[in-house]
């Protein structure tokens, strides 16, 4: 199956312009360099996986893209323009969102805050906003949850509502920090295919961070692999190889292909390197 980005490129060559470029980003936290010289770009309609072990700096990288963390070097260009503190065209779904079950707020209220939650004044009833909210809830298969208290939904349901919240302002990019952590296998597959569908239909760039790449393999157009404070980007075939990952980790690692899954193992004997044609 060709990636959704590839088919877009054929019908509309203009869509190939990156919506986000990260150039030579370095970040130091507390005197320690967390990320060094990280560069990659995101294309509209494509789903990119930001993969790396826990603590590799995935969240930090997302915070830099969102403008919440100042890099010590490098720059982020959004839609061809340098990063500004004004309106940010990126939707964001953080890793841990705690929603109080006692909070009087329905799923539709939370999504509506995604449209105009930064504006002053109380929300007046508006048909267009109601419509936008319901369309977006429909798009994430959560229309039936619209009138339920958001704090009482299950983790997977809350995840979908938060994705609708992030998408409803029609951003050109959406960043999801570990959306698959703490989901069961079925919800995991649902969320992954949902995100691939959204990338394709809404022509937006989707960046998903995960410490496990396998659930994303069927839908991922490109991968940014972060390890040892550095990153490599490209297609999965280009990046997830013994050579590239060994140089990122700074030690020998093996990339094993087991059925349709990829396993990265540290410290195996380089002589007995099984290579399967993926």
């Amino acid at each position: 199956m060709p990636g959704p980005g590839a088919s877009d490129a054929q019908s509309d060559p203009g869509a190939r312009d990156p919506v986000l470029e990260v150039e030579g980003i370095s970040v130091s936290l507390g005197g320690r360099e967390v990320l060094g010289e990280v560069s990659f770009y995101l294309l509209p309609g494509q789903l990119t996986g930001l993969i790396g072990p826990n603590g590799a700096g995935k969240t930090t990288l997302m915070r830099v893209i969102l403008g919440l963390q100042a890099p010590t070097a490098g720059r982020v260009t959004l839609a061809g323009r340098p990063h500004s503190s004004g309106r940010r065209p990126a939707g964001y779904v953080p890793q841990k969102v705690v929603l109080d079950p006692d909070m009087p707020m329905r799923a539709r209220d939370l999504v509506a805050l995604g449209i105009d939650g930064h504006r002053f004044g109380i929300p007046l009833p508006s048909r267009s906003r109601r419509q936008a909210v319901e369309e977006m809830l429909e798009a994430v298969d959560a229309l039936h949850l619209a009138d339920q208290r958001v704090g009482r939904l299950s983790g997977g349901e809350q995840q979908r509502v938060l994705i609708a919240h992030a998408l409803v302002s029609r951003p050109s990019i959406i960043l999801l920090d570990e959306p698959l952590a703490s989901l069961d296998l079925r919800s995991e597959q649902e969320v992954v295919s949902l995100l691939a569908r959204i990338a394709e239909r809404q022509k937006i760039a989707v960046l998903i961070s995960a410490h496990e790449m396998n659930p994303l393999l069927p839908v991922m157009d490109r991968i940014v692999y972060v390890a040892g404070g550095r990153a490599a980007s490209g297609t999965t075939e280009e990046v997830v190889t013994t050579e590239v990952l060994s140089s990122l980790y700074g030690q020998h690692v093996d990339v094993l292909h087991v059925h349709d899954r990829i396993v990265v193992v540290a410290g195996a004997d380089p002589g007995r390197e099984p290579r399967s044609g993926a």
């Binding site: 004004g86 964001y92 929603l99 805050l113 930064h118």
Partner: peptide, 23 residues
């Protein structure tokens, strides 16, 4: 209160996202 109703609501409910949106 009425003036800041929506931003205050956003910041109270989803602070991490509010920061990312520039609040």
């Amino acid at each position: 209160v009425l003036l800041v109703y929506r931003p205050l609501m956003t910041v109270s409910v989803v602070p991490e996202i509010a920061e990312a949106r520039g609040l």
